[in-house]
């Protein structure tokens, strides 16, 4: 495959996929440790109504209103889940399931009701994205990376997801200590004066922002795979948090690259000429990685009963 084919057709989707995967995997590590992995499930379902409402409000499908809409929807969902949980004294899983399925239903209804004939916003796309189509038409080869005119026509999703990834990295680095303290020992953190409630919320909002940015690449539902599978696989590889984060990034990158390649070229190698869903393949690869670590990784077993 030459530069002339690779750079316009494959480079942007690959980079977008990688950024999306890593941007989700980073907060996913903490969600996993807080046993809030399914918040990712909730977020990815409520992203849809958030985006639809943002579209109805602003009449456009440009990125920033959608991001804000999705972030607000996630905050709303988290608050609603907490309210339902506390007021109704309902167990957390049911409170989550109840809230996000209803919000999702609302989103689908709004979508059907609103006039989206002029705009590309259908449910299936929302669910599994369109990574393959994020190509860079004006590129002619590796030299285009240095050509400002060509760079101006990069698919806009790429700088967006790259920026989001930067923001996620900065957040993780800045609030590292707070996240670790409040995740490990909540009451101790409270006595230090840390506002663990706000930290929780901030983590969820960051996860939501990553989910929305990744949305274009892999759709909302597969974002869950990115939140959970690389961190879970990493969790099984080590007992140190810093190492776990590193492994989760490695696994996220492998999932994105291998997933995209297999989706695009796998069928070609098998004799068909149509690609399959890159998003689905990325999720599948991350699942295969998880299965492998679950079978073979060094720290996969629970720490047993303590020795004296």
């Amino acid at each position: 495959m030459t530069g002339a084919e690779f750079v316009p057709l494959s480079l942007p989707p690959l980079l977008i996929g990688i950024c999306a995967a890593v941007a989700c995997a980073l907060p996913g590590n903490f969600l996993l440790l807080r046993k809030q992995a399914l918040i990712g499930d909730a977020i990815s379902h409520v992203v849809l109504p958030g985006i639809v409402i943002a579209f109805l409000f602003t009449g456009s499908v440009s990125a920033w209103p959608m991001m804000v809409g999705a972030a607000l929807a996630s905050v709303f969902a988290v608050v609603l889940i907490e309210a339902v949980r506390r007021l109704g004294r309902i167990e957390p899983g049911a409170a989550m399931g109840l809230t996000f399925t209803t919000m999702f239903a609302g989103g689908v209804l709004l979508l059907e009701q609103s006039d989206t004939s002029t705009v590309h916003l259908d449910v299936e796309h929302a669910l599994y994205g369109n990574l393959e189509s994020l190509i860079w038409l004006d590129a002619v080869g590796w030299q285009s990376l240095a050509d400002p005119a060509a760079l101006a026509t990069l698919p806009v999703e790429l700088p967006r997801i790259a920026l989001t990834l930067m923001a996620v990295i900065v957040f993780t680095w800045l609030f590292w200590r707070l996240l670790v303290l409040s995740t490990f020992d909540d009451s101790f953190a409270l006595t230090l004066g840390l506002h663990t409630g706000w930290i929780s919320l901030a983590l969820v909002v960051v996860a939501a922002v990553a989910a929305v940015a990744a949305f274009d690449a892999v759709g909302s539902i597969i974002v869950i795979a990115m939140f959970i599978c690389p961190p879970a696989s990493a969790r099984l590889m080590t007992n140190r948090l810093e190492v776990q984060i590193a492994w989760s990034v490695v696994f996220a990158v492998i999932s994105a690259v291998l997933g995209y390649v297999l989706a695009g070229y796998g069928p070609l190698w098998l004799g068909s000429d149509n690609a399959v869903s890159a998003a689905g393949m990325i999720a599948t690869v991350s699942g295969v990685i998880l299965a492998s670590t679950a079978l073979f990784a060094p720290c996969r077993k629970r720490a047993g009963a303590p020795r004296h």
């Binding site: 992995a37 499930d41 669910l127 869950i224 795979a225 869903s277 998003a279 689905g280 393949m281 599948t284």
Partner: peptide, 14 residues
């Protein structure tokens, strides 16, 4: 739950 959900679904989409 989350990993099975998303991986199986992803494969289903494929």
């Amino acid at each position: 739950i989350g990993s099975v959900l998303s991986v199986f679904f992803g494969f289903g989409i494929v």
